[in-house]
Design a protein around this nucleic acid. Structure first.
Lengths: 160, 160
DNA sequence: TTAATTCGGACCATTTTAGTACCTTTTGCG
DNA sequence: CGCAAAAGGTACTAAAATGGTCCGAATTAA
């Protein structure tokens, strides 16, 4: 759950690094060196981040990269969007209502709702917050309303 | 984000189907037919779900499968655990403190915190709730405390 | 013009995922 | 007892995603 690819991790790392270097331009090679990533990999990620509008780039000699906005104006949701792409849950491809596996649509849409909820929560977490080292307390997430207000009396089993 | 494999979707589908058939035993072939899945695939999934303790099985002729508990006693977190396995974010493998990419640990742990929070929320969503078709309202998730109480005044950009 | 850089692809190796098959074990029933 | 109908386990193969690399084109400062 919440499986992230390595590249997403690396991308976050780059963004974190960039958020600590003011507004000086940093070359891809530079960033690679500081983060420990390979130059081609860092370069690739920077392109992706650039396309997503999270970093700005200056071409030509003396060019480089820079955070497009301050770290507290970049949300975790944007970071994930940029690096993982918009992720779709296996949806029935026949259009709503006419799929042969009727129930798949329903189940799929349930996960989808949860997905949306999580994504929404991630919009309120900033890159700046992500890079904070301290803060061992875990977030509170309430999904109960995702599923319908009335069913809330159950649960409470404490299993597994 | 929240990338789920097809099998997880299928598995949920099977569970959803099973939650609608009382306590009669259903053969793998039966379930496959009703859900539209291939028999080998359904069979494979049922084995996995069985091992995870979400369904019980009866062997021998006249055997079959059955939900191990009622649908509201099975949490979404368990479903994901069973089908996706315990998922770890790319962690630095050198042990905390001595990884060459120092910041990777930190960033990784941030995602980890978020991961934990999400998983916790998923524990409160039951299979029964997942299969409810109505309920178009989305869940509320609050990640702010995941990152530190004091930083809460930011955000509010409404970008993208 | 030359050197430093980003940009945009294409490309390939490795890993994951999905699906299938085969054989074993268990159990009801004639 | 012996057969048939089931689940259980394992291993295998094909396809897709992932991670990583490289190369040529475009851009710009000196």
């Amino acid at each position: 759950m919440l499986r992230m690819s390595k590249l997403t991790d690396y991308g976050t790392l780059i963004l974190a690094h960039l958020s600590g270097t003011g507004d000086e331009l940093q070359t891809a090679a530079d960033i690679a060196g500081r983060t420990g990533l390979g130059v081609p990999t860092a370069s690739k990620l920077l392109k992706i981040l650039g396309k997503a509008g999270l970093v700005t780039s200056v071409r030509g000699s003396h060019g480089g990269y820079q955070l497009a906005r301050s770290a507290d104006q970049i949300s975790a949701a944007e970071v994930i969007d940029a690096l993982e792409g918009p992720v779709a849950i296996t949806v029935c491809s026949n259009g709503v209502g006419n799929c042969e596996i009727e129930s798949l649509c329903l189940v799929g849409s349930a996960w989808q709702r949860i997905n949306v909820a999580i994504r929404r929560a991630l919009k309120d977490v900033s890159l700046a917050q992500l890079t904070v080292t301290t803060g061992t307390d875990y977030p509170l997430i309430d999904l109960t309303s995702a599923v319908r207000p009335e069913e809330q009396h159950l649960g409470k089993d404490g299993s597994h």
